[in-house]
């Protein structure tokens, strides 16, 4: 169950990677920072204003979506013809910048926004579960469905998919690729923020959680082949479960202290296997 919960968050981050990559061909190394911003901003708003939970969370997501848009407008758009290496460095720069701003204007301590609906464990089929975990899973599933509906049934969603399939052809039928890229960045930021908002009450958050989140979300999206929201969702849940299993095994001398390291090794192995296949497909395509 813990695997599914954390996997949901990775899925939300992976969704962000997938949306941006399929529309623009860019991997946004700052994707994890959106999760961090979601958690931090929701904490700040809830802590310092008297706003009730729902408006506060919506406000948080709106703010982070704006950050995503600004990131695109300020950094990515000006470097459109940049090489892959340049784009990696630019988005890493953005990641460090956002992290620095968060650490500077708020706090470098770990913080925890309040639970959405108390912290009393619910009994479910004989197992106990945190209500926040249900929130996390429910939100992710809902977000998935909303995104899928948006992409399938709305004009803007269809335009985004057109860009993902063939940017040049989309341009010919009057779809402005730059507008679509802008939308994809805000959308990705919003999903990241959503993940941050729902997970922070359970795990606490700090200005530095973005890197790890980004890495795991990337692997989730890579398992799905950066293809569809649903694929990223499956990828996220897969990693969450594999990770919780790997950590649960008794590694003898490599005791629980290395949980993070073991999880990372597993992630890298998945990445190696998966991307070998992706590369082969790419070469043929």
């Amino acid at each position: 169950m813990a695997g599914v919960t954390s996997g949901s968050i990775y899925a939300l981050v992976g969704l962000g990677f997938t949306v941006i990559y399929s529309v623009t061909g860019i991997i946004n190394f700052a994707q994890g920072e959106f999760v961090m911003l979601g958690g931090m901003i929701s904490y700040i708003i809830l802590d310092s204003t008297g706003l009730p939970t729902v408006p506060a969370l919506l406000l948080t997501i709106a703010v982070v979506a704006t950050v995503g848009a600004v990131l695109y407008l300020m950094a990515i758009r000006s470097a459109r013809k940049a090489s892959v290496v340049s784009l990696i460095i630019i988005t890493i720069g953005a990641s460090v910048f956002i992290r620095g701003v968060a650490g500077e204007i708020w706090t470098r301590d770990y913080v925890r926004p309040p639970y959405f609906s108390g912290d009393e464990s619910l009994s479910f089929l004989g197992a106990y579960i945190q209500p926040q975990a249900l929130w996390i899973i429910g939100t992710t599933v809902a977000a998935m469905i909303v995104l899928q509906v948006f992409l399938t049934y709305t004009v803007m969603g269809k335009a985004l998919r057109a860009c993902a399939i063939n940017r040049a052809a989309a341009g010919l039928v009057g779809i402005d690729a730059r507008v679509m890229a802008l939308i994809s960045f805000s959308l990705a930021a919003a999903f990241g923020a959503l993940g941050g908002v729902v997970v922070a009450p359970l795990t606490t958050t700090s200005y530095s959680v973005g890197v790890m989140m980004g890495l795991k979300g990337f692997v989730a999206a890579a398992i799905g082949g950066f293809r569809s929201p649903f694929a990223a969702f499956v990828g996220g849940i897969t990693i969450g479960i594999v990770e919780s299993l790997a950590v649960a095994i008794d590694w003898g001398p490599f005791s629980s202290a290395y949980k993070d390291a073991i999880a990372l090794v597993v992630l890298l192995l998945i990445l190696l296997v998966r991307s070998g296949r992706l590369a082969a497909e790419e070469r043929v395509g």
């Binding site: 950094a75 460095i89 630019i90 890493i92 720069g93 953005a94 990641s95 460090v96 910048f97 956002i98 992290r99 620095g100 701003v101 650490g103 500077e104």
Partner: peptide, 11 residues
């Protein structure tokens, strides 16, 4: 301010 400055330099 180090992180902010380095991020800006990179970008």
């Amino acid at each position: 301010l180090d992180l902010i400055v380095y991020g800006l330099i990179l970008m």
